Simulated assay, not measured.
Amino acid sequence: MAKLGLTDEDKPNHLTDVVGEKLERATGGLPDRDEPVPGPSPNPATNLIIHDILLRSAGRLSRMAVEKAVLGRQYGQQFAKDAVENRSLVHTLAAYGVTKVATKSVPGALIVGTGLALKVLFDRSQSRRKSRRQGNRTLRRQADPDGKI
Rank of each mutant, 00 (worst) to 15 (best):
A26Q: 11
P107I: 09
Q74I: 10
A69N: 02
V112E: 00
V66C: 06
P12N: 04
D146R: 08
D144G: 11
G29D: 11
D82Y: 00
P38N: 12
L118A: 11
Q142S: 12
K81W: 10
G76V: 08
A83H: 01
L118K: 15
R140Q: 11
L121P: 15
L55C: 11
N47F: 00
R137E: 14
G135Q: 11
R25K: 14
Q134N: 13
R124V: 05
K104H: 12
F79K: 08
A117Y: 04
G72S: 09
A65W: 01
A58I: 10
R56L: 08
G39I: 02
E85K: 09
V120Q: 10
H51M: 05
R73T: 12
P145W: 06
K11V: 04
Q126P: 00
V98K: 04
R129I: 12
T16Q: 07
D17L: 03
V19I: 15
K11Y: 00
S105N: 12
R133G: 05
L6W: 07
K22S: 05
G59N: 06
N136M: 11
S125E: 14
K130G: 15
E85Y: 08
A109M: 03
G76R: 00
L23R: 15
I50W: 01
T46E: 09
K3T: 10
G28Q: 14
K81L: 04
A69V: 02
